[in-house]
Design a protein around this nucleic acid. Sequence first.
DNA 1: TATGAATGAGTCTTCATTCAT
DNA 2: AATGAATGAAGACTCATTCAT
Lengths: 200, 200, 200, 200
Amino acid sequence: MSPRKAAAQRDGQSLHDLLVETAQKMIATHGTTGMTVREIARMAGVADGVLYNHFSDKEELVARALLEHVRTTEAELGELPVPGEGTVAGNLHRHLEFGLALHKVIAPAFRSLATQPGVLERFGEISERSGYWRDRLVTYLKEERALGRLRQESEVDAAAALLVGYCHASVMAEVFPHTGPLDPPSADAIVEAVLHGIAP
Amino acid sequence: MSPRKAAAQRDGQSLHDLLVETAQKMIATHGTTGMTVREIARMAGVADGVLYNHFSDKEELVARALLEHVRTTEAELGELPVPGEGTVAGNLHRHLEFGLALHKVIAPAFRSLATQPGVLERFGEISERSGYWRDRLVTYLKEERALGRLRQESEVDAAAALLVGYCHASVMAEVFPHTGPLDPPSADAIVEAVLHGIAP
Amino acid sequence: MSPRKAAAQRDGQSLHDLLVETAQKMIATHGTTGMTVREIARMAGVADGVLYNHFSDKEELVARALLEHVRTTEAELGELPVPGEGTVAGNLHRHLEFGLALHKVIAPAFRSLATQPGVLERFGEISERSGYWRDRLVTYLKEERALGRLRQESEVDAAAALLVGYCHASVMAEVFPHTGPLDPPSADAIVEAVLHGIAP
Amino acid sequence: MSPRKAAAQRDGQSLHDLLVETAQKMIATHGTTGMTVREIARMAGVADGVLYNHFSDKEELVARALLEHVRTTEAELGELPVPGEGTVAGNLHRHLEFGLALHKVIAPAFRSLATQPGVLERFGEISERSGYWRDRLVTYLKEERALGRLRQESEVDAAAALLVGYCHASVMAEVFPHTGPLDPPSADAIVEAVLHGIAP
DNA sequence: TATGAATGAGTCTTCATTCAT
DNA sequence: AATGAATGAAGACTCATTCAT
């Protein structure tokens, strides 16, 4: 009957953030499939329509939740190597490990978004292209090259693309069991191939 | 009250095939997203219910359309290189081209799997085909290595995995336009990286 | 492509009769629930549309099949007693037995027709009110009364209605397990009650 | 774009109750046959989807409407006679009247059970009520017999079963209009038959 | 007369969005 | 700002009926 502040401010959190956080948790546990606005509201303990006071539509909320999910996950994966420190091989190893873990966690969320292209557009609009692993990998490689620890004329962008692609493929191997490589190469072999190639 | 031979036989084509073809075109242009039964019927110029005279499900129709789409495109992909002939770089280039085109066709299947997991079942053949290229790539690389045109101790399995992964990723870049790399490396750069690595 | 005589006349039977017979068998085994025209046609081995060459619509076919079902069933239940022969009690016993068996067989067919009132209207139109058990029971009782084996002023119509009702109720007791009498009286008791009443 | 309080609160009635009442009226006038979700909504003057804000199913709504219909009518049925008071004939008359009215109300349930067996589940209460009258009738008869107002050795259970059956049959005569007896006996005749039988 | 592919209105159900309070 | 009941346009699927052959 009367406006309630209820759950929204029990802990001084804005409803905006509460909704994003709730949706994020739902994404983390069940993906975005079957995630209805009513369900989100119910889990957040707020009214159905409150969403539209803070977001233009459901897509915006989901996109933000997705972004938050990626950020959160990435933040929990630990540190990435510093250029110039350790060995390049070891550092690439760490990057690969990081990338594989990241994609494994994020995949379910994105997978079910395939049918809701609008969300991905929003995601693209609100996400600033920095700080994500792919960019950090490229940056890392470029700095190592600048330091002389990689060949000056080497194709670091291509190498990054190959590594990122490998992560994607390993994720798809889980989604589509039959498409995966039967006998996946070891991380060491991957790093070795990226570093020294296969030419004589 | 209504035409009986309708569009189906305007060109001597069965309605079954007309529907598959229509769905195939829709997949090719817009993916499986938002592809409703009614829309398919409308685009085929037939009644809503026809679908169920020829397919048990919407899923069956979609799966068949997908399959047909893969077959059609695959037939246009041309030959893969023979080990020992031409240059290794050129041959890898050709393999990459083939793989990219192949995965581009497979992508739509990925989309529909999110909400229609049943499609995966009937789509088994596709994975075999996708696997087929991977195996041919590995075989090719191993034969080139045996011929001495690749380094003896090189990680050809890892190199193949990287290339396959790159194809997957490039496909996802189309499915999720905003998540892809802003400036994808050239095929030449990819081949260069695979051949010579990035180490000094 | 060309008109077929096929199954219809394999045994010199008209399609009309084949369809009625097929529908009748379906009613006997599964009731009328979910009995689609396509299914009838398929089981009769004829084309979907042939029905409309012999019946104005599905309802007419089903009504005729129902009628046939009742006739057939009734014919298989054996003889009813002849007035004046045996004892009245024994004869009533036989009538009751007959009625219970009849209703037990017919019930499933009628039950699922409850939602298709059109069929019952047709049934009423085409069924001539004679030969059915209820009428034979009334006739029997009146003749016994005329013969002096029942009280002259007795309410034989009412007695018949009570007996018929008892058969209905015993059928419903099977359809709705919870509504049936927990401890149904014996046929002997029923006959006794009908014959001598309960008044002092 | 559309009214928000709509019909629901025109008279201070909840939409839940409005829907039940609307469905109840439809049952009372036309039975459950052809009672579509859309038709219910249209007659209630509300949107198609409202139903699912208040009931899990169409079945739940129908079951509740049925139940309400039974309750309402049953409340109007009045008292049953007390053993030893009045005449037995008059009392049986009253019992018969009560039973007929009661079963008349139960009839629609019978119809809906054909295609919606799930309704039976939620309808358990009704059978208890129906059983209730039967038990009261048996009890009544036994007490009258104990009082000496019925023959000591009379089959009161059988008599009760006949009367209950008669009620069932009279209900079926309404559900299946064309199958009923063309010339139903009067209540007096029924009572007379039950009291004095038909034997000489 | 028989065929059977095509029709399309109709079924129940879901869910993002609105708006009077 | 918050509420949450009401909205209504989809969604996939069914099936009695028609009609060119």
